[in-house]
Nucleic acid binder design. Sequence first.
DNA 1: GCGACAG
DNA 2: ATCTTGTCGC
Length: 329
Amino acid sequence: MARKAAGRPPEETLSLWKREQALLKTLVVDRDTEAWQRDPAFSGLQRVGGVDVSFVKGDSVSACASLVVLSYPELEVMYEDCRMVSLTAPYVSGFLAFREVPFLVDAVQQLREKEPRLMPQVLFVDGNGVLHHRGFGVACHLGVVTDLPCIGVAKKLLQVDGLENNALHKEKIRLLKAGGDSFPLMGGSGTVLGMALKSHDHSTKPLYVSVGHKMSLEAAVRLTHGCCKFRIPEPVRQADIRSRDYIRRTLGVQGAPALRPERSKKAQRPKACPQGASEEPAVEEPRPTPTPPGGLPRLPRTPPTPEHARRPLRPRFLAEERVVGRGCP
DNA sequence: GCGACAG
DNA sequence: ATCTTGTCGC
């Protein structure tokens, strides 16, 4: 059953959390520590990981924590771990790690024990690294605790240390031309806290990349771009997709009508471009798996990380993360 | 009261 | 974070 959201923690708790962040922050390494990070083609990099936590709709406690490992540079999923968890801490901006990190560490630890050869060489984290109120976001936290290189990838600018999503910022975004273009995010102290990155040619909204651990910002940005089929880097995107699918197959579609009326599917032809030369993401599209006629299979409640989470689902919108800008001149 | 607010 | 999926513009 859906549990209620925990309120904001007392100031005393937040003080303890701040102290822990300050302590762990001294352990962050914000430069390249691995040979592949300095290689122009990332030679030697074979496995990239992504983590995510997805939530059950009307429930601020139940969630699915996922860890995926993809091959590099192919970006094919080699490993997937999804499990239902009960979150204890509420979401408080600046303290995301205290809500999510314990379960992600568990997942890494599981991998370490069961399939150590699949351990990713770098982890993409949904959220910020040093671009943070106190310079220690969730990507730093997970990095220090697991000792893995980590990259923080946020979808929105955390307006901190003088950074603002204002007209100037938006203009800089507008000036980004091609995928891979970026500009620095300079904090009030004169430090570069991260980079706004146009993750592919047709992306309107940038990614906000910052150092998590054991990696330079330059390498982090370059690798992030190298892992983007769509706006969101594939490791995080796959972790997100798979954890959400896991929830849907475990709990069913929340709030959907018992019987969804059949909608007409004819005349749903994707609009072809008059000139035929339609634009595709820099990398070829992943193929959607066909929908099984029966709909979504159900799983028993909270099975411990089984292989079940690989069944085909209803096709997703391939355009979901793509900017629907000018496809046809 | 007002604005901010990663996920 | 979560809901939902047609539709508008190039």
